[in-house]
Design a binder for these strands. Structure first.
Lengths: 243, 243
DNA sequence: CGCGCAATTGATTGATGTCAATTGGAGTGG
DNA sequence: CCACTCCAATTGACATCAATCAATTGCGCG
């Protein structure tokens, strides 16, 4: 324990509720099986029945729903500290896959160990529940983004979200962060063609609201970007509440 | 208790796991505050902090994310037996609203009572968790639908989903069910214009895969419709598993 | 230096939104 | 039972948006 594997997850949860010493100890003593993945590799396969759930430690991963003709929709982007696959504990059979967007590291915790920890602390159990319910809230926001926002606004909205999420786990500076996602992957996030994503990126650059060079995004004016993109951070649940 | 308010919810859960006698008793003894709503009324307001969660008994309701200019995206459609707002228990602040699509009835159960029941049965707590995690899986499927399916396929996909869900709670016949949702509401579900929804409806009718008169939809060939619409029911979790 | 992937561009086709009527059907009052 | 109203469904014409196709450019890395 205290080897830091769970630090980012703890940061994440601590932004939403106070964790007791017992909760922290239980988390840190979870048996964690560290694995590394190369960009493009699958962490969890669609239709599989995982016996353990993965928590991302390093790099980025995506959940994707696959279509029969090979197209896919990315339904979530995950960053260090996200307990990505807690859903599998209740769902039993994966309705989607999780794969590495960059080289990444994740720890796998068996469902047996998670059940045991939850029995010792009902509150910790609720924290796990909370984590999946925030995922659901993000799914809703992504739905609205795809369904109702113009392409440029979709981009701005995602940038606001990712900036805040990276900030929580200490991976953003005052006004910039790294987003190692290709435009092709973004096209699967936004339900657009690659070409159109590219045009949206350029259009967003022209607004002057952001600078985007390589994988580094610098936000010139977060409030203005949020307004421009109809971004309301409520769904990220970044407030401490007893839960 | 045993007044039937929770029957549809129990049907729903029983299709996913075995409920013990204790679980059933706990559910049926939950203090339930019945309320009626007229079409268009709000059951739960965006940004509110509900102290209780609602379970739909009769009629249909929709979750919707609102945009500043009045547009909205419907992120879920709910039918009798759906414990619609369990999410609020963990989220504390609503990131979306729930409103009546038809006249409807719902019971409200206080979070205090739900916490108490969950303390008596960890398994029941997991059933509540499961319910929200299935919602998340549906959100993912809806994401893929909006992002990657053609308008006609989106319609077919929704029809498959609603048919199965209505079947579970005994509200569908062998091959038909009632879907009291206007094309205008469907446009907010699919992220399309009303006009285009109308054209998609007609196009789907022309395939002969369904008949749709008034609010009644008859499915001529479910397998063919599912194939046509890239519908894979995995995400609905319609299998019994110990959870 | 050259390979390979990602980003970018232009031209074109096809899909979807918008606008403006019109039709159809259920319910209401006379 | 008929006229009227309201709302949902439908239609056609047209403008826009976004996908597709086909290169080309730019950049990181061996």
């Amino acid at each position: 324990m205290a080897d830091g594997k769970f630090d980012a997850f703890i940061l994440n949860m601590s932004r939403r509720d106070v964790l007791s010493g017992q909760d922290l100890a239980l988390i840190n003593s979870l048996p964690a099986n560290l694995k590394s993945f190369r960009r493009g590799e699958e962490l969890v396969a669609e239709h599989s029945r995982p016996g353990s759930s993965c928590l991302l430690i390093k790099g980025m991963a995506a959940r994707a729903v696959q279509l029969s003709d090979g197209r896919q929709q990315i339904t979530a982007l995950h960053i260090p500290g996200d307990f990505v696959d807690l859903h599998a504990m209740m769902l039993k059979v994966m309705d989607h896959s999780v794969s590495a967007i960059t080289d990444c590291q994740a720890v796998f915790v068996s469902h047996r160990a998670l059940y045991a920890a939850m029995e010792k602390s009902l509150h910790l159990g609720r924290m796990f529940w909370l984590s999946t319910v925030i995922d659901a809230a993000m799914h809703r926001a992504w739905n609205a983004r795809i369904g109702r926002l113009a392409p440029v606004a979709r981009l701005g909205h995602l940038i606001c979200e990712m900036y805040l999420r990276f900030s929580v786990v200490g991976l953003a500076t005052e006004n910039s962060f790294g987003l190692p996602v290709t435009q092709n992957e973004l096209s699967d996030v936004f339900g657009l063609s690659v070409v159109h994503v590219n045009r949206a990126v350029q259009q967003l650059r022209r607004t002057g609201l952001i600078t985007w060079k390589g994988t580094t995004i610098r936000i010139a004016d977060l409030d203005a970007l949020a307004k421009f993109s109809e971004f309301d951070p409520t769904y990220l649940n970044l407030f401490i509440e007893p839960r």
